[in-house]
Amino acid sequence: MSQLSRRAFVGALPLGLGGVSLLGGGLIGGASTPALAATHEVAKTPATFTPLAQIRIGRFTVTALTDGYADMPYDYFPGRTAAEVEQAAVAQFTARPSGVRFLFNQYLIEDGAHRILIDAGAAGSIGQTGALPQALGTLGVQPDQIDAVIVTHMHQDHMGGLVLGGKNNYPEAELYIDRRDVKHWTDPAKRSGAADYLQTSFQMAEEVVRLYPKLQAIDGEREIVPGVFIVDLTGHTPGHIGVRVEDGGQSLIMVSDMLFPVVHPGATDVFFLFEQDPVAAKAMRDRFFPRAASEGALIAATHMPFPGLGRVVADRGQLRWQVADWALQN
């Protein structure tokens, strides 16, 4: 496993958010391994809320969107008891009767020449999801106007929108996925030995490969377009990646599933049921969180409360998540 590159943190914005605007309405509101369908709310209709938030990073506009939410059972966090996780969720106001409230945040990067979408949401396959197309429509953006989709890893909540209805839903987009994830999630032997709750991800991965002829299985860190970089964050899955946007002395790192509500960044020894390699995931967090705190890196995280923007900060010897300050644009 490659070491986390220092390039992930170069140019981190040290104070505040540059210029940020909040658009639209706000949101309301030893583990067991049962099948996914039996434990998560399954949406019968797409979510209908479309909150949006924007931040400027140099010449880039980054818009936080959401596909919806799901409540993850309290026993989905190996490393802590369900009671401990619930207690932490209550203290952080993310507790719901059926579990910890997880958001599914996606991020649209625009610079006037390119539209790049980070992940495509669960699209109704988990919880109350399916709102991403509506959120894009609120911006006046149609799926066929997306130039590239970067899939941070091949779990169903990050790629479901790509193949909803058995179709290529982003027909003009180049698709970027780390080669290690493509290999893992299309391996018949891996699928046959996987738990029931991972089978949807394996199925969707096969559909992605079949439906997207512009798929680029990439290796390691690279620049997608000027100022947009792939960051290696392997651990959560074999090819888990992040995305760094950098321009004008400012930067934002989208870290996908490096951070989960309630347990991170305070405890790197707490995992999530879907993680393929807990040892590697812990090792990456052990490296990433302290460096993020020391560099003051501005971070966007998929499952943190909307819009998922914040920093890892050191507080009396402990690391914690600090929601980023907001400032309305003129």
Results as ranks from 00 to 15, higher is better:
H236D: 10
L65M: 11
I146E: 09
A89I: 03
A148K: 13
T237N: 03
D71T: 09
H114G: 02
L328D: 14
H153C: 08
V255Y: 12
P78N: 08
G227Y: 12
P51V: 06
V149L: 01
V225G: 11
M254N: 07
L198S: 02
G112R: 15
A217P: 01
Y69S: 04
P307R: 09
V100P: 08
S5G: 09
H40N: 05
G193A: 09
D315H: 11
F49H: 09
T237C: 01
F274Q: 08
G266L: 07
D75L: 04
E223H: 12
R320Q: 03
L13P: 02
M254I: 11
H236P: 00
T81E: 05
I126P: 06
D119H: 05
W326I: 06
L65S: 10
D111N: 15
Q128D: 14
A297D: 04
F60K: 10
K183W: 05
D187Y: 11
L17D: 11
P143L: 15
Q318L: 10
A53F: 14
P73W: 13
T237M: 00
R191I: 05
I55T: 11
A267C: 03
H303T: 06
G11N: 15
T186A: 00
L23V: 07
E223D: 10
H303W: 02
H114L: 01
A8R: 09
M204C: 04
P226R: 11
V270E: 05
A8L: 03
A173T: 07
